[in-house]
Design a protein around this nucleic acid. Structure first.
Lengths: 219, 219
DNA sequence: GTCTATATCGAGATAGAC
DNA sequence: GTCTATCTCGATATAGAC
């Protein structure tokens, strides 16, 4: 009486949800690895082991599928970051130091990057969607900065000696460091360093990124 | 007796070269602004004001055209960087300090970013091609690290107190900062800072990036 | 060499049977 | 709800006229 088999043979609400999830996960994985335009609806449904029409039935269109993955993962990542920032606020009476703020910004995506983390591929998807995404995604990225503003405001408060534009620029630099964590760039680093860099040592990477970024905010 | 008109009406070797150049420039511009897959051969030839078949006649295929633009611009950028590194070597007896090395890495792409520079769009193209490019481009990027190695070697010599893997990671971070200079990211920064950041002040940006990066290499 | 017309292909979306 | 078969479109590439 395997639940899986039962679900597949007598499709009920669970089976519908299961199919939708399989499409979602297959699409995210393929988009992350090969890019949006290089992945066809046929690739996705084949990888998921479902019917060709599933994408349009469950999501409306390939574009809408991409957008829904982007929305969900962005919300998840931002939620983790916001929670860490909130906790840092609580610990420091509403005015956390730079290192704590940057930790809230950096730690969640790096946690996702861990080979043991279920969202390792989601981070690759998000970084890719950011540059290759559809017009709708670029729209959102370009105009909705409310999430980032929590961090820039915190940094402004933590760096009263700096000109505000300086703070924004340095935050911009840190974001560049975070976006550099695609498989492609990490592989290239591995080749360049001839294996010296241990890309799977996430704790070490986080410590290095934080040290680098925090130093950049000094003076 | 306009040379342009003559060239168009009696196509000679100059006209052929002119057509090829127009295709090259139109393609680079459209690829940089809209991405490779979103630009059709029809878009390119229409923008260039030439015949639809020109792309295949002069370059073989759309893929080959992309690769040729990538090759040419990469070579130009690397040449500028290598020259600056070479000059820094000359000024410091073969062992330049970190700031000079990072200047050689950062200054050329930032010069291209200047609105007054003829290669402003080429830099956008290069950053985009790096993430969205074809398999051939990713191949080159992933395996050919000879150009980067000149910089990592110089940094290793300039930072004897650091573990080599530390140096490679920090170089990786700086590359992330450089790749963050797409129009999209700069526009987003402009929105976030509510216009405080002056993205067209390239000298200021270079000073800020260098200060940030050099601090990151301290200790 | 250039251009028009077209061959060929693969994509996303969908109608209709079950 | 699911799946098969198909519609329709837009892409690259190319053959052949000039």
């Amino acid at each position: 009486m395997s639940l899986d088999e039962t679900a597949q043979e007598t499709p009920g609400p669970e089976a519908e949800a299961a199919t939708k999830h399989m499409v979602f996960n297959a699409a995210e994985r393929l988009f992350a690895l090969n890019g949006f335009q290089n992945v066809s609806v046929r690739d996705i449904t084949a990888e998921a082991g479902v019917n060709l029409a599933s994408v349009n039935y469950h999501f409306g269109s390939k574009d809408a599928l991409l957008f829904e993955i982007f929305r969900r993962r962005t919300a998840e990542l931002n939620r983790e970051r916001a929670r860490m920032l909130h906790e840092a606020n609580d610990r420091h009476g509403g005015k956390p130091p730079v290192r704590e703020i940057l930790t809230a910004l950096i730690a969640p995506p790096l946690r996702w990057l861990d080979p043991a983390h279920e969202h390792r591929i989601s981070l690759q998807f998000l970084i890719r969607a950011r540059s290759e995404g559809t017009a709708a995604i670029r729209e959102v990225l370009g105009t909705d900065v409310s999430h980032l503003r929590r961090f820039s405001d915190a940094l402004l408060a933590a760096c009263p000696a700096l000109q505000p534009d300086e703070v924004y620029w340095r935050l911009h630099f840190v974001l560049g460091m975070i976006h550099q964590n695609r498989f492609m760039e990490l592989d290239r680093l591995h080749v360049l360093s001839e294996g010296l860099t241990r890309e799977d040592d996430i704790a070490g990477l986080q410590a290095r990124m934080l040290d680098f970024a925090v130093k950049g905010f000094e003076v």
